[in-house]
């Protein structure tokens, strides 16, 4: 005799199954919610960790010089005096230094990009012997310690009568930015499909036109990322600028280091912090403007298809 499970049995089993499935779904949702809360807390901790020094710099810039060692989260008696003092040409040269840094940074970035893009494209796309050797030498040049170059550069520029000139800063900065430019863009160009270039050539473009019209617009994210990195590198450089510049050509980092207080032997912490906040603003603006392109450029070339 066989027993056939009728509709009544199936109907009796279904609610049990549904309950289990529902509880499993609920547990999964709880786990997902817990995971997102954990992720949020971790992200908040990282953000606080990164931004706390910048926040402290900003609020110290608003403190009066006699309350600069306060540890309150907000200044008790906020003042703009430090920002005014930072730009006081009688005492500090921040205004001129900002212009110098900006001009040097833009020039370095433009020259490094023009040379770096061409070099990276040639190394990535053209077939010639010794490509790996060149990339190895570029890598070696980028790892050469800057402090080892300080004395030879000082000696060289003194002999050339370039000491304290703009070119004595621009040339070493370009040399520092070029390896980064070539490496970043080379890895990007290598990942780009060759077919695009071939299609452009078939459509009648010369090699230079194919590069300019097809490849370069596609490489814009990587070019922007590299430009930002080169600019930030030039903007933040201190070691070479402290030795190779004078009061007319000094950059912001050197100008801030040379700040003098209102009293002899006084270290103007609050004015320095105010100047530090001002100096950070151009970088923040640049990064905010090009944020999307930077992220695209940083992730491009990282995944092989």
């Amino acid at each position: 005799m066989t027993t056939v499970a009728g509709p009544t049995t199936a109907a009796a089993e279904r609610p049990v199954f549904d309950d289990r499935a529902a509880s499993r779904v609920r547990a999964r949702r709880r786990r997902a919610a817990g995971s997102s809360v954990r992720t949020g807390i971790q992200a908040a901790l990282i953000v606080i960790w990164c931004l706390l020094p910048a926040y402290w710099m900003l609020i110290t810039g608003f403190r009066r010089s006699d309350t600069v060692y306060e540890t309150t989260l907000l200044p008790t008696t906020p003042t703009f005096d430090n920002f005014i003092q930072a730009f006081n040409p009688a005492r500090n040269q921040l205004g001129r230094a900002l212009l110098n840094s900006f001009g040097i940074g833009v020039l370095v970035t433009v020259i490094a990009l023009v040379v770096g893009v061409s070099a990276a494209y040639a190394i990535a796309r053209l077939n010639f012997p010794g490509k790996g050797l060149i990339m190895g030498a570029v890598l070696g040049a980028s790892m050469f310690p800057g402090v080892a170059l300080l004395t030879p550069l000082f000696s060289l520029f003194t002999q050339l009568n370039w000491q304290g000139s703009y070119q004595s800063l621009i040339i070493p900065y370009i040399a520092g930015a070029l390896p980064l430019t070539v490496w970043t863009l080379n890895s990007f160009f290598r990942e780009m499909p060759w077919e695009l270039e071939e299609a452009a050539r078939i459509d009648g473009c010369t090699a230079a036109q194919a590069f300019r019209i097809v490849i370069l617009p596609l490489a814009a994210p990587a070019v922007f990322t590299t430009a930002i990195l080169a600019f930030i590198g030039s903007w933040n450089e201190y070691l070479l600028a402290s030795v190779l510049s004078n009061t007319q050509t000094q950059t912001v980092t050197v100008a801030i280091g040379n700040f003098v207080g209102s009293q002899p032997r006084e270290i103007p912490y609050a004015t320095t912090m105010a100047a530090g906040s001002v100096v950070t603003i151009p970088l923040i603006i640049l990064v905010l403007i090009f944020q999307r392109r930077i992220v695209a450029g940083l992730t491009a070339g990282g995944v092989k298809g």
Binding site: K131, G132, L133, M135, A137, L139, G140
Partner: peptide, 14 residues
């Protein structure tokens, strides 16, 4: 080959 070339270029530079 490129990996070896990179090493040769790096050490060759120094």
């Amino acid at each position: 080959k490129e990996g070896f070339d990179l090493g040769v270029g790096f050490f060759g530079f120094f």
